[in-house]
Simulated assay, not measured.
Amino acid sequence: MTLPVTRAVDLRRESLDGVLDRVERSLQVRLDRETVVCKRRTVGARTDRDSWVRVERRGFDRIGAQGWNGPESAAVLSGVVMPSWYAGFSWREPGEPVMWRADEMELVNAAPVGQAAPVIEDPRLPDAWWSALNASLDALATQSAPRVATPDTETITQELVTRTLGEVFPEVTDTMVEEWRPAHADLTWANVTGPEFCMIDWEDWGMAPRGLDAATLWGCSLALPALAERVWSERRPDLESRSGLLMALFFCAKVAGPHAHPEDPRLEPARKEAARLIAELGEVGQRPHGSRPH
């Protein structure tokens, strides 16, 4: 069945008073309108009970059979530094193939490390931050996920990985992902806080190729070689697994692919790293599947 096309909407350019009023009535909170943060498809605000409410608009074509209750389902995870989830609800936009979802969660006072996904200035994070990142990602990887990750709101599948890599790097002929593990699936610098570490925005989490989170944070650091190197060093076991190398190349394909922006400071580093990754995948390909480089 073909899903109806969703009308493109940028919430930064829309009147959201009605949406916020509905959220207040349903969650029985008062939103502090002075703290409202609007993004393209989400809006968030502080409440009168010192919690945070995040609201997202998503089209039917971006909601699979598993639904999109990521923050709610992530509440059962243990050993991961993340905001506690309190309540949530969803509703359909009248006359549109669109759903809205609101989640109330613990207020995180630390600010995101970056205002956007990539960073162009060194955040100078303390060693304790990196230790907390490693502990959370290691804990996440040991748990079960009842859902498949949806990075960029698109369900990640073997077919998606193969198609994305094939369009940009056709010389990579073996794109089979060997290891799948639970992942945050949107681990950008805008979704981690600092200097106190916390992982926020769990709407897209689920099973994903091993190394997806590490590759995403690494890729968002490419404009700062020292920072990218630090991410790679901290998450080396993931990133130097065969699946991790594929995920790093998967990220490079998004930056350097058909929709590459010539002014993206990650563009040239991504092209350079892609050449290295392709060479390393070739070396790994000489070993039996499942073996790991030293």
Rank of each mutant, 00 (worst) to 15 (best):
W130A: 01
P118L: 13
R101A: 14
G219N: 05
A208L: 04
Q66N: 14
P97Q: 07
A141L: 08
A226G: 03
V192R: 03
R101K: 14
P265K: 00
R25A: 14
V284C: 07
R40I: 09
R236I: 00
A215G: 00
R12Q: 07
A75N: 09
R54G: 05
E34Q: 15
A75E: 09
A208M: 06
G290H: 07
T153P: 07
R266S: 02
A135L: 14
C198I: 06
T150M: 12
N69T: 14
P258N: 04
G95S: 07
H184P: 02
E121V: 12
A117D: 12
P97R: 06
A260R: 05
Q115P: 01
V53E: 07
A270M: 01
R242A: 00
L227W: 01
E229F: 02
G95M: 07
A8P: 12
T153D: 14
P83L: 03
P170E: 10
D238Y: 04
A128W: 07
T150Q: 13
M247G: 02
R147L: 13
R12K: 06
E263T: 06
G244F: 00
S233G: 02
R163M: 14
V108P: 07
R57T: 09
D201M: 03
L222W: 00
A214I: 00
L239W: 01
V36C: 08
S243D: 00
R49N: 13
S90L: 09
V192P: 05
W218I: 03
R181W: 08
L27D: 07
S15V: 13
A223P: 03
E178R: 12
P123T: 04
R12N: 07
P269E: 01
W68I: 09
G44L: 12
D201F: 03
F250E: 03
L27W: 06
V108M: 08
A132G: 09
G18P: 07
I200Y: 04
E93V: 14
T173Y: 04
D122I: 05
S26E: 15
R124D: 15
A149C: 07
E178M: 13
G44M: 11
V161H: 10
R12C: 08
V255A: 01
R49W: 08
A116C: 10
H289R: 15
R235G: 00
M199K: 04
E240P: 01
D103Q: 06
V255G: 02
I63V: 15
H294C: 09
P126E: 08
P71M: 05
F197R: 04
G206I: 04
T42D: 08
V255M: 01
L277E: 05
P288D: 09
P182A: 05
A274N: 08
L246K: 04
